[in-house]
Design a protein around this nucleic acid. Sequence first.
DNA 1: AATAAAATTTAGTCTAATCTAAAAATATGT
DNA 2: ACATATTTTTAGATTAGACTAAATTTTATT
Lengths: 217, 217
Amino acid sequence: MLTFSEENYLKTIFHLEQIHSNGVSTNALSKEMETKASSVTDMIKKLSEKKLINYKKYKGFKLSQFGMETAIAIIRKHRLWEVFLVEKLNFSWDEVHEVAEQLEHIKSEKLTNKLDAFLAYPKIDPHGDPIPNKDGNFPKISKMLFSECQVGDEGTFIGVKDSSSIFLQFLDKNNIYLNAKVKIIQKEAFDLSLKIEINNNTIMVSHKTASNLYLQS
Amino acid sequence: MLTFSEENYLKTIFHLEQIHSNGVSTNALSKEMETKASSVTDMIKKLSEKKLINYKKYKGFKLSQFGMETAIAIIRKHRLWEVFLVEKLNFSWDEVHEVAEQLEHIKSEKLTNKLDAFLAYPKIDPHGDPIPNKDGNFPKISKMLFSECQVGDEGTFIGVKDSSSIFLQFLDKNNIYLNAKVKIIQKEAFDLSLKIEINNNTIMVSHKTASNLYLQS
DNA sequence: AATAAAATTTAGTCTAATCTAAAAATATGT
DNA sequence: ACATATTTTTAGATTAGACTAAATTTTATT
């Protein structure tokens, strides 16, 4: 049985591997975890003994197959709970992360799978990130930033790039809701702002805003 | 911020105070927590320093007002999550306790209150135990055992005394479901077995079974 | 009231997860 | 290529929560 701390390390290693695909360094992990490098070395040794990562002194580390599965299971739980909090309990986006950080450590496969079913097997979380299924497979989501779309493109607004409170609250205030149907009406050459149709309203969004919204077509 | 361990101690002290109303002893608590008495003494000191209990060496301890509120908040979370697991995720009664033991430690008042609202402010959990409200007040539940009822009594089956898996599975098998409307039809003088009407079915239950079912009239 | 029994506390050890400071290994710049 | 900088690891300390064994206090029994 893994501790919370071990699980948090695994999760963070997983995320770092997405960027540094040829292995993660002690320093990179310590920065991400906001701990000292020596603490990371200690934990890395423990994870290595438990066969969760492959590690050679001074040479960085990578998740093992087993470690990968474990990390994905935690991410699955995190994202499912986020959906639950937003869709069932009416949390706003900017409040869910902290609570999901706790809920992701609840140990019950049965709970996870029943929650998944209760939520009707969602494929993406409120930030637009894909939710791995029971077998650990991530659904393919073809998403692009609003700012990269062509006039005429349409689809569903499924997530954000910037998930800061201030941005999410800005979206709320402007009635830009998750899962809204969106169509790109016009693009201004001058400032790259977009005219979009969203939920049968036509509004203008700045280039900066458009660069932080994902459309699934 | 309290640790899981501190929270578990508080909860257990609360339960013991229901029985030993003039204070709890180190030994009683160590038995209930399945730890050694010396470990309890250590923890008691810490809880005392944090003003969660009132403690005099060799003289036992009691929850302070603050400790009481904290314990009740944990019990509230435990019971709300049990309702969620049974009513929303279709867990069976005998599976919920272990998971609720984990969920009760999630720290977010907002989550607790939103969960409460989502569940429509339930007053009792799947074992028939009362759920304290946001202010820590327990609802008054007038429950009695089926075995103590008179012929003609009617009400709702709200909980069990024996919550062992084997008993809960037995109830499932015999279509005795929580919140069923019940009427006592007849009582056999010979073996004290009852004929009851439950969900428009008439069935017989043994005295032993009837001694473990609570009716709310 | 004296002594035996039981309960409680203290003292010291262990493990997990962190830290600081120092040592060792690796990487970099001229 | 070699001196320096950076990264990583080791060594030793700390805190929380548990433990064992011993000491102390309280309770019970004659």
